[in-house]
Simulated scan of single mutants.
Amino acid sequence: MNEHTFHGTVGREIRINHSQRSGVAVVNFSIAINSRRFDKSKGHYVERPTVWKDVVVFGQFAENVYDTLTTGMHVTITGEEVDDSYTKELDEPGRDDVVIRRTKIEARDVAVSLRFQKAQVEKVQRSREQPGDQQGNGRATTAPQPLG
């Protein structure tokens, strides 16, 4: 498994969709990862370019993420980098199709960073009528909200 941990800021409005076949929730968003390094020759820190990572989350987990996160929140994402490449077919004669190479983080865990913000946490109430249901049916009526 190629599990990694990323710390960043939610940088795009979080979108939720549901699979047409199964109804499973799918959430997509991106995080901005900012970093800096100390430049000895200049005697101070130098900001590195922002790195953007796309994140995808599925199922009840996706709904929890959608109900909790907002743009600008500092988060920690743990997950696996997966190939999300595709081929763009060109309609122009004599031109080869273009392969668009990209990756996404398929999140295994998403946590709100408490370094620069506070949060209230509320446990999601799951239905006990369907044991082993990974998606869960019952949800809490209010989601965790950032404070301050």
Rank of each mutant, 00 (worst) to 15 (best):
V121I: 09
R95T: 06
S30G: 06
Q60I: 06
P131H: 05
I16A: 06
V56H: 02
R139P: 01
E106C: 04
Q130L: 13
V26N: 08
A111R: 11
F61R: 11
N17H: 05
I33F: 00
V24R: 09
R21L: 15
V112A: 11
T103I: 13
R12G: 03
N2F: 05
E129L: 13
I31W: 00
F116W: 06
A25R: 05
H74Q: 15
D67S: 09
A107I: 11
T78D: 01
S22L: 10
K123T: 14
V110C: 04
I33M: 14
F61T: 11
Q134W: 14
F61W: 03
S22P: 00
R48T: 11
R37S: 12
V75S: 03
R108C: 04
R15G: 03
V24F: 03
G94E: 10
G94A: 06
P49Y: 04
V24W: 02
G23L: 08
S41L: 13
P49S: 02
A140F: 02
V56S: 04
G59W: 05
M1A: 04
D39P: 01
E3D: 02
D97F: 07
V99M: 09
I33T: 02
F38W: 13
S85P: 02
R128L: 14
E129T: 10
D96R: 11
Q60W: 09
L90K: 09
G11F: 07
D84L: 06
V110A: 04
T71R: 14
D54E: 12
V10Q: 00
Q130V: 15
R101H: 10
Q135E: 15
N64K: 08
M1Q: 00
Q120L: 14
K42A: 14
T5D: 03
R12I: 13
K88A: 08
A143E: 01
F29G: 02
P49K: 05
V65Q: 03
V65H: 01
N34F: 03
E122K: 14
V124Y: 03
N34R: 08
R108S: 07
H4I: 15
T5S: 13
I77P: 00
E13W: 05
S127A: 13
T9E: 09
G136N: 05
D133T: 03
